[in-house]
Design a protein around this nucleic acid. Structure first.
Ligand SMILES: NC(=O)c1ccc[n+]([C@@H]2O[C@H](COP(=O)([O-])OP(=O)(O)OC[C@H]3O[C@@H](n4cnc5c(N)ncnc54)[C@H](O)[C@@H]3O)[C@@H](O)[C@H]2O)c1
Ligand SMILES: NC(=O)c1ccc[n+]([C@@H]2O[C@H](COP(=O)([O-])OP(=O)(O)OC[C@H]3O[C@@H](n4cnc5c(N)ncnc54)[C@H](O)[C@@H]3O)[C@@H](O)[C@H]2O)c1
Lengths: 220, 220
DNA sequence: AAAATATTGATATAAAAATATCGATATGAT
DNA sequence: ATCATATCGATATTTTTATATCAATATTTT
């Protein structure tokens, strides 16, 4: 059992989930500021751009290891590279995508993930109409070839966009192929072994929050 | 200024964001249990299905107003209707979607949102190749017709799937059309007036969490 | 009918996250 | 050169969220 002190230190040093969630937002506004020629930015400015409090910004940025200058703020290029270093898994976010349907195709065609270090290196489907074609320039392979192709390309992430009924089965194939984490867009609750990371992307959650917030705001 | 007591009471009664995020997950497993003929479910069972702790389930469900029976659990059909009542804004989640591109088309074709009470009643784009056609059975109108069509159909939610450059401009049109909340899939930080609810859907956030979690788990 | 047991829900505690306060310091102004 | 000020970052506090404990109770077993 850890001592209280150990636990306090660890909890102070470990980056927090809400902080991680905000890092991509900082990154995007910083890149935009950078391309407009700016060199430094204050926590105040970043905060107003993201509609959050400056103190939250300073706490978040501290986790990346940056040190700001009083009266000046943070170096934008330095901050960009520190945030990229924090979230980019050392440039190794190679991914396989399974299920090149409506959602899967949209993700395949989206280049915004490159900014976050993601590289979808192959896609898989069971539909013979789709296999051995390309979608948005990405090759679609038959699902059964995933283990073989994985052994050559060594993907880190599996992006799951198959229907709920086949989600667990395809997840199992991804895991057998050596994938380290699954980004699950199907709304199926998956079982994965403890050494595989599972990130569920539940759009219904965002909708529920919006729906309840609207109801509250329109009934004061 | 509120008294401490008032603040405590309010914070005890108000549904919490993490709870709201889990409600759609409960709903989906409950619907699946229900269709397999089951009548009651315990917090223990729900917890193991969602990979969370039973105490979290009981706290969450308490917000819906349900009362479970010791030794039996919760009535599944009753729970489903209470959760639907909590997140469905009284069945009025009518929406307009702007930007019928890769992502927008995927959302238009997704019927899983119906389960959460969402009904996309019209879509809008500026691309003349797309306007006055239908995608997945939904009519695509020219963007400039949004205010006029809104005045007839009274949408509550605006789903924003346009490129970042035009996101603010289209959001403004949505707001002028009387929309109460914006579900923003563009990665643009938007400015909206205080009476309009903004829900940002940032897929990069999920990716960042996954990426950092993989890195941690593979370096123990 | 009484006892055993599974499960809820109230109350208490701990951990995580957000917010407030303020001294330290780098820069620009006087 | 000194002063004024904007801004960071350390420390403290509050709020939110998760977790633990256990008495109350509905059901099953004996
Ligand atoms: N479309 C959306 O906007 C949206 C939103 C939220 C969640 N989702 C979820 O994403 C998933 C996909 O949704 P969609 O709308 O793209 O559906 P879709 O039917 O358009 O696409 C599913 C694709 O998966 C393929 N597939 C089926 N079984 C497979 C298997 N065993 N292995 C590999 N590929 C297989 C199909 O051939 C198809 O191409 C679903 O689980 C859905 O719930 C979709
Ligand atoms: N595709 C994805 O997987 C994905 C993921 C995350 C976020 N996003 C975001 O979603 C948005 C759309 O992405 P996409 O991949 O669907 O792009 P896309 O280019 O495929 O689609 C954009 C659509 O918006 C239309 N459009 C452009 N300007 C418009 C305007 N002023 N009014 C109405 N419609 C307009 C275009 O004609 C096009 O149909 C972007 O902001 C992107 O960053 C996309």
């Amino acid at each position: 059992m850890d001592s209280i002190q150990t636990r306090i230190e660890r909890s102070n040093n470990m980056i927090k989930i809400p902080t991680i969630r905000r890092l991509p937002r900082y990154l995007r506004v910083l890149q935009s500021l950078s391309s407009s020629g700016r060199e430094f930015v204050s926590s105040e400015t970043l905060a107003s751009l993201l509609n959050i409090k400056p103190i939250v910004v300073r706490k978040d940025l501290a986790f990346t290891g940056i040190s700001g200058k009083p009266r000046v703020g943070y170096s934008i290029t330095h901050l960009i590279s520190l945030i990229e270093g924090t979230i980019n898994f050392k440039g190794k976010n190679t991914a396989f995508l399974a299920g090149a349907g409506n959602l899967g195709s949209a993700l395949l065609g989206y280049n915004g993930f490159a900014r976050h270090g993601l590289d979808i290196i192959a896609a898989f489907d069971v539909d013979p109409q789709k296999t051995d074609t390309t979608i948005h320039g990405k090759s679609i392979y038959p699902l059964e070839r995933m283990p073989e192709i994985a052994s050559r390309l060594n993907p880190y992430i599996g992006i799951l966009c198959v229907p709920e009924e086949s989600a667990q089965q395809v997840a199992d194939i991804m895991i057998a192929s050596g994938i380290k984490g699954i980004w699950n867009f199907s709304n199926k609750e998956l079982n994965v072994p403890p050494d595989v990371v599972l990130q569920n992307e539940d759009l219904g959650a965002g909708l529920a929050i919006l729906s309840i917030a609207i109801e509250k705001s329109s009934r004061p």
